[in-house]
Every structure is written in structure tokens, then in C-alpha cells.
Nucleic acid binder design. Structure first.
Length: 508
RNA sequence: GACCCGGUAGCUCAGCUGGUAGAGCAACGGACUUUUAAUCCGUAGGUCCUGGGUUCGAUCCCCAGCCGGGUCACCA
């Protein structure tokens, strides 16, 4: 204990003193009658109904919470405790709770969980408060939480937090502390949960069946990304964590489950930045007899459903920009919009000319890039930054879309869309390629890319081709980055801020 | 992976041309029975990220590393 810092040592000493005084510092349960917000509501109802007693007290409540603020006044004290409903003020008075119970308050600290019982009243300054008759220790905190002091402007209600918990690294590593001291962080994850619930509700309502496919796979596919590689001992073979759900879900369409969706973690062994975490949440769905046109309508309806359900608005602010969701969303052709940006039809430009344009814009690493890649790069440079309002980008080059059907009337393109919102790709969809022979050729083209050194090119999945040979009906499929969508709805600039425990390097 | 920025008390930060460190909050002791960033008086609290180097002397300068943030690249 000598090697503990002063603040930790003193709390250990208080723990010992609690036990010496016969107080168990770690309780088994607490029978609360209200959450803090409900207690305040009950007081205001009594007040409105005129049922307060002469002293201005409403009925007894029992509330449990974490002590987040303390103001001692000698023979009395004010505190705030916080629970899932918010904060409520407590008023401890020596001649109400008794000498001994009041003295025991010396052994409490910010961060302790306590339970209190007493009637509610309104203080001179107007705050609904529990006048504590008795209190119990629920859990002694041995490590100080980095509470900031919260200043609330009486006129505007504006909250200012003084010297809070700002170190990004600590906040991610100790998310429990981040959540404990930041109600607004808790709110982000409540919204995340509601978004997921709304997505499920939408898919279920559209007649889709929620399914679970393997996360641990003998062969990975369905996207271009490097996988996490692991080993199954009993089978004595290499296994991969999935990078996408796509190929398994389409096997289910072959099997006759005509509308399926999966909401799950995918894993990609790539870099980490503000919009990428190695494990992330995808929603993918596939609908038989459908194509990408119909899926655009479905995506629009889904976005509006989630916004209506979770935020009750169709206008959001992201990074200071107002984003309006109004169906139909804008639709632009990838190649058409690029032609416009270039001032010359892309079709009239040779690969060499495209390469020269890209080089002029400072696009690096163009060696070996094919026409499709050049078009994609130029699009990313010239068009993408302006896609703030929800915009469907249509019909990507075939080379970039090995699982999408050729576009009707233009076999160099595919029937594919990506939905961009606030410059971020949030959805990706195809009319699914269901010609097994074409699919084999596409896989083989990918294999040639692999042999040429592209370790993100897709691998040939013979079992998937076998499934296609049995017959995949026309199918529309969509993948949605759930984390990114939550970023939009919660106005968070980093994916780490919508993932409870983002991937970090080891602390040691 | 490249570049830029950062790592000092439990938290938020300051620290001058190099002389082994300060503040506010939290904590501790005292005063205070309606406060709310409570107030007032006092006290204690440090692996200055790690390891080398330069120097009489390094939180500070140099090198290497670790961790984080940002930008770019990668991630169709």
C-alpha cells in the first residue's frame, strides 16, 4: 500500500475505517423506488397536484447513484448523485440523519455508489432535492474518477465542464471512466443502440429474415481487404475472420431464403483511422427478384425510418454542415459526373490521358492502375468531396466490382451504387452477379491481380461458384456501415467515438 | 507506412537562454445547517513516457524506442 499514490492510499484507509465501523463497503443490492429523473417527476406531479406537506415535502423516495459532486457545510452537506436517469441533488443534515450517520459521510468520496432514502423538497434556489433521512454505502470507489466541475448557466442552461477528462487515449482505454464522467458519451451509445434496434425493426418489417453466417471462415471473400488469419487446432487448418458476409448470404438466397439480412462484426486487417476500425459493424441484406434500382428506394426508406424513429428529424448537423434527408436522394453516374468535372467525356479519354490528369492532381501510386482504378481515383479527387447531401453514385467500372452484374446497355460498367453522406461512403450495393460463368471469370481476373501483387484482390471461392451454378435468382444486395451511420446521427468525427472499445495498441 | 503535434501530481494544464518543478480542480486538516464551478484558512501529493547521449548539471538539447492525436497514403 505504501507504493500507492496518496489519493489511492487515502481511499483504502477509508475502506478499512468503514469496515471498522461495521459498514459493509460493497453491498449486494439496493431497492430503489425511482431513478433520479423519475423522482424529480414525482415531486413535480405532487407539487402540481398540491399534495405537498406543510414543510413542502413530497413522498419518500429511495434513489441509488454515484456521487458526482459534494459541497460540505459543516453540519450539513449538498451532493449530487447520478444514475441512468440523470442527476439529483441530495441534502444531508446532521440533525436529520443523526450524528453517527453524518460522521460516516466523511468516509465517502466522489465516485462512491450510495443509496439514500428521504422525502423530496425544493431548495431555496429551486432545485428538487432529496432530504436524506438515511443513506447506505453501495460500493466504495478506490480510484478517483476524473470528474470535471459542471457549471450551468442559470439563464441559458448552458453546461460548461471545467478541467474534465480530455485525454483521448485514456478515454478510449478506460471507456468505463469516460462513460462514468461524460453523460454525453453515454447518450451517443444509447443512440447507437436505438439505431440498431430501428434497423432491425425496419428489416423485419420489410419481411427480411435475420440470419447468422460464419465469422470464422475457411476462405474469406465478398470484399477487397486483407483478413485476420487464425488457426483451428483440431482441424489443423488456417481459418480467417470474415471481411464481409456477402458470399454466405447469397448462398442463402440460392437456398430459397428470399430475403435475408445479417447485422454483425466484420474484420479487416487494415490501417486504423477516423473512419476505420479493424472490427466494425455491417448490416448486409439481399433480396431476391430485386435489382439495385429497387434497393435505392429501400435504402431511402430505411434512412428516413431510422431518422424518424431515433431522432425524430430528417435534418441533421454533421461537422457543422446541415444535411437534409429528402427522398428521392440525388443520383449521379460515377462516370457521368466525372466527365462533367473533367470537362471532357471520360469515354473520349485514353488510359494515358486519364493517368496524366490524375498525375496532375497529385494522385500518388498510379503504377499498374487500370482504367477502372484511374476513374475511381479521379472521381475521389474531383467529385467525392462535394457529396455532402445524401447522394447515390451509380454504375462503377467492372474492374472494381467483381460481384456486381454488368450494367444494362454498358457492359464496361456494373449496376452498383454507393450512397455518400457528408462525404462518407455509408452504403454499397449491387444488382448481384448471378451468372456463374461470368463470376468465375471475374474471380480469375481478381486472381491475376493477386498474382500481380495485390494482396487485397479477392480469392476464387469454388464453393460459391457451385452455389451460383444451382441458380441465384436476380438479387439486389446492400451493405451498410453501421458505425459510420451512427457517426452521422451523433455528429462524431471519429469511428472510435461510436465504438465502445476501439482497437488500440497494447498499453505495455 | 510518411510527416506534424503531444506524453509533467488522480484530472486539466503551465514550466523562460539547461540549474532536479508550479497552478486550478480533486484529496487531507480546520471553519461553515439551503449550497450548486459553494466559500474561507492551512497541508500534502511527482518514475517530468522509456532507454541512451551531450553537459559540472537535462522536464528542457540530441538519438532511439513506446503510446496517443492529426494530416496524407492504404482501406474499390
Amino acid at each position: 500500500m505504501d507504493d500507492l499514490s496518496q489519493v489511492l492510499r487515502i481511499r483504502r484507509e477509508k475502506l478499512d475505517r468503514l469496515r471498522e465501523r461495521g459498514i459493509e463497503p460493497y453491498a449486494y443490492n439496493f431497492d430503489a423506488t425511482h431513478r433520479s429523473s423519475g423522482a424529480v417527476d414525482s415531486f413535480e406531479e405532487a407539487e402540481a397536484a398540491g399534495t405537498l406537506d406543510e414543510g413542502g415535502h413530497a413522498g419518500m423516495v429511495r434513489v441509488g447513484g454515484r456521487i458526482v459532486a459534494w459541497r460540505g457545510h459543516g453540519k450539513s452537506a449538498f451532493a449530487h448523485v447520478e444514475d441512468a436517469g440523470g442527476r439529483i441533488q441530495l441534502y444531508f443534515k446532521k440533525d436529520v440523519i443523526g450524528e453517527e450517520a453524518f460522521a460516516d459521510l466523511d468516509l465517502t468520496d466522489l465516485g462512491d455508489w450510495i443509496g439514500v432514502e428521504g422525502p423530496l423538497f425544493r431548495t431555496r434556489t429551486g432545485e428538487v432535492t432529496v432530504r436524506v433521512d438515511s443513506w447506505t454505502m453501495l460500493s466504495k470507489s478506490l480510484r478517483p474518477l476524473p470528474f470535471g466541475k459542471v457549471e450551468v448557466d442559470a439563464d441559458t442552461g448552458e453546461r460548461t465542464v471545467h478541467s474534465g477528462f480530455a485525454d483521448a487515449e485514456s478515454r478510449y482505454r478506460q471507456r468505463y471512466a469516460d462513460l462514468a464522467v461524460h453523460p454525453e458519451v453515454r447518450e451517443v451509445f444509447r443512440i447507437r443502440s436505438r439505431v440498431v434496434t430501428a434497423l432491425r425493426g425496419f428489416m423485419d418489417g420489410e419481411g427480411f429474415l435475420e440470419v447468422e453466417t460464419p465469422a470464422l471462415q475457411p476462405l474469406y471473400g465478398g470484399a477487397s481487404a486483407r483478413p485476420f488469419v487464425t488457426r483451428h487446432n483440431a482441424l489443423d487448418r488456417t481459418m480467417y475472420l470474415r471481411i464481409a458476409d456477402e458470399l454466405y448470404l447469397k448462398r442463402l438466397i440460392v437456398g430459397g431464403l428470399d430475403r435475408v439480412y445479417e447485422l454483425s462484426k466484420d474484420f479487416r486487417n487494415e490501417g486504423i483511422d477516423r473512419s476505420h476500425n479493424p472490427e466494425f459493424t455491417m448490416l448486409e441484406w439481399y433480396q431476391a427478384f430485386s435489382d439495385y434500382e429497387e434497393q435505392m428506394d429501400l435504402v431511402e426508406r430505411m434512412c428516413l425510418h431510422v431518422l424518424d424513429t431515433v431522432l425524430d428529424t430528417r435534418t441533421i448537423t454533421y461537422g457543422g454542415k446541415e444535411i437534409r434527408f429528402e427522398a428521392p436522394f440525388r443520383r449521379i453516374g460515377l462516370v457521368d459526373s466525372l466527365s462533367e468535372a473533367l470537362g471532357t467525356p471520360v469515354a473520349d479519354l485514353s488510359d494515358a490521358e486519364l493517368r496524366a490528369r490524375a498525375k496532375k492532381l497529385g494522385v500518388p501510386e498510379l503504377e499498374g492502375a487500370g482504367r477502372g482504378k484511374l476513374i475511381d481515383k479521379l472521381f475521389g479527387e474531383l467529385v467525392e468531396p462535394d457529396l455532402i447531401q445524401p447522394t447515390f453514385v451509380l454504375d462503377h467500372p467492372k474492374e472494381l466490382s467483381p460481384l456486381a452484374k454488368p450494367k444494362r446497355g454498358d457492359p464496361e460498367l456494373t449496376e452498383r451504387f454507393e450512397l455518400y453522406i457528408a462525404g462518407m461512403e455509408a452504403f454499397n450495393a449491387f444488382s448481384e452477379l448471378n451468372d456463374p460463368l461470368d463470376q468465375r471469370e471475374r474471380f480469375e481476373a481478381q486472381a491475376r491481380l493477386r498474382d500481380a501483387g495485390d494482396d487485397e484482390a479477392q480469392t476464387i471461392d469454388e464453393d460459391y461458384i457451385r452455389a451460383l451454378e444451382y441458380g441465384l435468382p436476380p438479387t439486389g444486395g446492400v451493405g451498410m456501415g453501421v458505425d459510420r451511420f451512427v457517426m452521422l446521427l451523433t455528429d462524431q468525427s471519429s469511428i472510435r467515438d461510436v465504438i465502445l472499445f476501439p482497437t488500440l495498441r497494447s498499453e505495455e
